[in-house]
């Protein structure tokens, strides 16, 4: 319990920063929608003529003249943001004790490595959930304000479920990177690199529209906004796949951190 509280306190400021950033990303994004909405169908036509550009902006098979359609474009960048947050958080929360040389203090206390990881994961989970809820509330309120048709709260809620899985995937990749790496400084760069590589892979898959089998390699293809808008639900395969990745990464985190020498 003490470690959880300590970590919550340590990450409080950073979480506030990310939350404020998220609110403004959504706000500014949707204010742009106003401009788009007035141009109406012409924006859709523009992107139809430029498929690569459309892919880059995630504008494919959705009508961006609607508020939720426009939001789905924005959602890709929301995903990137929470993924960076989760990767850094996961890497940092484990590796920080070694980086700041406080590991020698903490692990001279009667606490096992496993107990410390469990507490840190709980604190990280709370952070991730809060950022998710902030995103949810901001999105529902701001998108709702621009929405003219049927309620979109259900769609947004589903997107947030997908986002939560993506957050957990990158959080656990971050903690695994920190647990594996004997050099604590490498944890964050490794975790964010993995995140960026998978992001660019998903963009590339959108542009080429080939090699669709590769979509299993990038979490950004698991829970896409357009799937929700067009189908109303995600493919259950991706839930299972996400869960599998998270479990493997968590096992790796516990196992490797418990058996290796701390860098003190």
């Amino acid at each position: 319990m003490n470690i959880i509280l300590r970590e919550l306190k340590a990450h409080r400021r950073s979480l506030i920063g990310w939350s404020v950033g998220m609110f403004f990303l959504i706000l500014v994004g949707m204010v742009k929608y106003q401009g788009f909405a007035s141009s109406g169908q012409s924006a859709n036509d523009l992107f139809k003529g430029l498929p690569t550009l459309a892919a880059l902006f995630g504008v494919q098979s959705v009508d961006i003249s609607t508020a939720i359609g426009f939001y789905s474009v924005l959602f890709l960048y929301i995903l990137v943001m929470v993924s960076i947050h989760a990767s850094l958080l996961g890497a940092d929360i484990i590796s920080k004790e070694e980086q700041d040389k406080t590991a020698e203090f903490l692990f001279a206390k009667p606490v096992t490595r496993r107990q410390a990881i469990t507490s840190k994961l709980q604190a990280a989970l709370i952070n991730v959930v809060i950022l998710n809820l902030v995103t949810l509330v901001s999105s529902v309120v701001i998108v709702g304000a621009y929405n003219k048709g049927a309620s979109v709260t259900g769609d947004i809620l589903l997107m947030m479920v997908g986002m939560f899985f993506i957050q957990l995937i990158f959080l656990s990749i971050g903690t695994a990177a920190a647990a594996l790496s004997k050099r604590p400084k490498l944890a964050a760069p490794v975790a964010t690199s993995i995140m960026l590589i998978t992001f660019f892979l998903s963009l590339w898959l959108d542009i080429t529209k080939k090699y669709s089998g590769l979509k299993y390699l990038t979490p950004f293809k698991y829970f896409e906004a357009k799937t929700i808008i067009n189908n109303g639900s995600y493919d259950p395969v991706f839930y299972a796949l996400s869960l599998g990745i998270i479990v493997v990464m968590l096992i790796a985190t516990y196992r490797f951190y418990s058996v290796r020498d701390l860098s003190v």
């Binding site: 020698e104 001279a108 009667p110």
Partner: peptide, 16 residues
């Protein structure tokens, strides 16, 4: 963890 209940440790360099 169990035995560390009864150990006090002062490292050569203190970082907190």
């Amino acid at each position: 963890a169990e035995i560390k209940q009864d150990i006090g440790y002062l490292p050569s360099e203190v970082f907190y």
